[in-house]
Computed example of a mutant assay.
Amino acid sequence: MVESRGEVIVIDPLAPNDAGAAVWQRLADAPPTQFVVLKPDHVRDVDWFRERYGAAAWGPALVDPDDVPSTRFASL
């Protein structure tokens, strides 16, 4: 997670499991305003983050056809 000028950006988001209390607390303290997916195979939890936080999504134009998220990315 990166914080700068009022923006909180999560890079290649991966939802924490139940044991990730510190991560959950950090996300609660500073909810993401944007998230960035750097590689097409890192779309794993992008829909979860989009639904939970409503953050803007940036990512690749092409992803694996077997792992297409419902989230639409703005192009990097």
Rank of each mutant, 00 (worst) to 15 (best):
W24D: 02
A30T: 12
G20F: 06
P32S: 03
A21D: 11
A19Y: 14
L27P: 08
M1W: 02
R44I: 02
D18P: 11
V10M: 02
L76N: 12
S75D: 10
E3A: 13
W48D: 09
V8L: 07
D12A: 13
G6Q: 04
A21Q: 11
L14I: 13
R50P: 06
W24L: 00
L62W: 14
I9D: 04
A56K: 15
R72Y: 04
A56M: 15
A21F: 13
P60A: 02
V23A: 14
A57W: 08
V8T: 11
V10Y: 03
D45H: 12
V46H: 07
A15L: 08
V8R: 10
R50M: 05
W24T: 01
P16S: 06
R52H: 12
P31I: 04
Q34V: 09
A22M: 08
V36M: 04
L76T: 10
D66P: 11
F73D: 03
P13A: 08
S75E: 10
F35T: 03
P13W: 08
D45L: 10
D41T: 13
D45N: 12
P40Y: 00
L27E: 03
W24K: 07
P40N: 01
S75I: 10
A74I: 02
F35M: 08
H42D: 07
W48V: 02
V37K: 00
T33P: 08
T33I: 08
W48C: 05
A57K: 05
G20M: 00
D47L: 10
L38W: 02
V36S: 03
F49V: 03
A28R: 14
D67M: 13
A28N: 10
R44K: 01
H42K: 12
A22S: 11
P69T: 05
W24E: 00
A28W: 09
G59E: 06
Q34E: 13
A30Q: 14
A21M: 11
F49N: 00
V8Y: 04
W48K: 00
A22T: 07
F73G: 05
L14F: 11
V63Y: 06
R52K: 14
A22I: 08
G59R: 08
E51N: 05
A74T: 08
R52V: 04
A15F: 01
R72S: 01
L38K: 03
Y53T: 04
D67Y: 12
A57S: 03
E51Y: 07
R52S: 00
S75G: 08
R5I: 02
A28I: 05
A22V: 05
S4K: 09
P32G: 03
V23W: 12
A61T: 09
F73P: 09
T71M: 03
V63Q: 01
G6C: 04
D41Y: 14
D66H: 15
D47Q: 14
F73A: 09
W48T: 00
R5T: 06
P60R: 01
V36D: 04
L38G: 10
G6D: 01
D18R: 14
P13G: 07
P13Y: 05
R26H: 09
Y53I: 07
